[in-house]
């Protein structure tokens, strides 16, 4: 166990709620979210920063939460899959993943949805090629990606219809 003097104070806003905690400097953001906040929707699929299933949005950008230290998020704003739905209503990305069968086992899904969310914030009308390119950030072993691509297209259409 770490010595007390090694512990660092952080304050992070997660899904709109402010959390203060004392953490070891080496803790990964993913572990902090999962183990300390109980936000287990963010999954961990590798130890080499390559699978993307841990993707969350930090200060507006999609990041791999296994590659960010909890201390680096200090003062920042994090959005995880648990924060996507608002007021009991699913986000269009979530609706579209369900509608288009964009998930099978669901393990990569939180990461894939956060990636999709960030992509559509940046580029509301991506082409299929752009979506496939963006999905380079995530590995899914179940879906063959096709229905994920479709889900993101559908989410783009729905977001536009709502706007």
């Amino acid at each position: 166990m770490a010595l007390a003097e090694e512990m660092v104070k952080i304050a992070v806003t997660v899904n709109g709620k402010r959390y203060e905690d004392t953490v070891e400097p080496r803790w990964l953001l993913a572990h902090w979210l999962r183990d300390r906040l109980g936000l287990t929707g963010t999954h961990i699929g590798c130890d080499t920063s390559q699978c993307g299933v841990c993707t969350v949005v930090l200060n507006g950008r999609a990041v791999k939460s296994c590659t960010v230290l909890a201390v680096q998020a200090d003062g920042g704003e994090v959005l995880t899959v648990e924060g996507l739905a608002r007021d009991g209503k699913l986000h269009p990305v979530q609706e579209a993943f369900r509608e288009a069968h964009g998930l099978q086992c669901g393990f990569c899904t939180p990461g894939a949805q956060m990636l999709a969310y960030a992509l559509l914030e940046e580029n509301p009308h991506p082409t299929e090629a752009e979506i496939r390119e963006a999905l380079d950030g995530i590995l899914c072993r179940c879906t063959g990606y096709q229905h994920i691509v479709r889900a993101i297209e559908l989410a783009a259409e729905r977001k536009e219809a709502k706007a």
């Binding site: 999962r34 936000l39 287990t40 929707g41 963010t42 999954h43 961990i44 995880t80 899959v81 648990e82 996507l84 739905a85 699913l90 979530q94 993943f97 369900r98 998930l103 669901g106 393990f107 899904t109 939180p110 949805q113």
Partner: peptide
């Protein structure tokens, strides 16, 4: 999907 898309699946590590 209802639980999986909102991050409420129960995987072993959860």
């Amino acid at each position: 999907d209802a639980r999986l898309i909102v991050g409420r699946g129960q995987f072993t590590d959860d």
